[in-house]
């Protein structure tokens, strides 16, 4: 098992883990914005930057995806690391001055304001929604679109997503709460010829997707998106009518 030091502290690290994992297990705080323990490291926010010393050669690396190895000496705080983290959070504060999570992180890192002209975004493009949809849910309903300054997260062609099961994992994981969904009782399609009632539906506001909710055969209350239940039944190998009742009626 590799012997490493973090901020001078001797640590025996397990094989094949990252600096961030070891640091957190040992109570050493490294700020992160795009890291989630259930997801693969992404290395995009760059807040978790640390300095590593491998046999005399030092360099700055992101701790969330740098694998520990024998003899590694890690510094999590020094003058340039602090300057870089401050600049990164200042850049994020410029982009999302009204996002609570960004403001809290800025406070934590001692940044009170920004010297750049502000924008009014809420998404910090941490990619957690995209990754949770791909890695955990397996739906791949959303992805990044465009590049550079125009980069954004979107459903295919900025239109209704045919893969979204309305599970809400993206809503749950979003650190700045800029993804929302809500269930409505009387959804309807309005055409020039007239209005067609859909009934209960789940609306994924960011992905322009609306999924009709299945109602319980017995009590008539909504259970979950019909498409989600179909996907789950297929995955679990259940009979098509296995998920026809709500939890209350089943019991």
């Amino acid at each position: 098992m590799p012997q490493i030091t973090i901020d001078g502290k001797q640590i025996t690290a397990p094989e094949g883990v990252t600096i961030l994992q070891v640091a957190r297990e040992n109570g050493i705080d490294i700020p992160t914005f795009c890291h989630h323990e259930a997801l693969e490291p992404w290395g995009a926010c760059r807040l978790c930057i640390v300095e590593v010393d491998e046999g005399g050669r030092t360099r700055l690396v992101t701790s969330c995806n740098f694998p520990v190895k024998e003899g590694l000496a890690v510094t999590t705080k020094n003058k340039s690391i602090i300057a870089i983290r401050k600049m990164i959070i200042e850049l994020l504060l410029t982009r999302c001055p009204n996002a609570q999570a960004v403001r809290q992180m800025a406070d934590k890192l001692g940044v009170t304001g920004t010297r750049f002209p502000i924008e009014n975004e809420f998404c910090i493009l941490c990619g957690m929604c995209v990754r949770v949809c791909k890695e955990i849910v397996g739906a791949q309903a959303i992805s990044f679109a465009s590049r550079g300054g125009n980069k954004t997260v979107a459903s295919p062609f900025f239109n209704r997503s045919g893969e979204c099961i309305g599970c809400g994992a993206c809503v749950y994981v979003c650190p700045t709460q800029c993804i929302t969904m809500n269930d409505v009782a009387e959804a309807a399609d309005v055409y020039s010829e007239g209005t067609e009632q859909v009934g209960y539906a789940r609306v994924m506001n960011n992905w322009r997707t609306r999924l009709p909710l299945k109602v319980c055969k017995s009590c008539g209350n909504p259970i979950a998106p019909e498409f989600q239940l179909q996907v789950l039944a297929k995955k679990a190998g259940l009979a098509p009518d296995a998920l026809d009742l709500c939890q209350g009626c089943k019991e």
């Binding site: 995009a44 760059r46 870089i84 850049l91 990619g127 590049r147 980069k151």
Partner: peptide, 22 residues
Amino acid sequence: FLIEESCGKCVPCREGVKRLLQ
């Protein structure tokens, strides 16, 4: 040129280039 060609993944490049241009 770089604003258009940055992939936009990491914060320093994506946001930094925008501010640099400003």
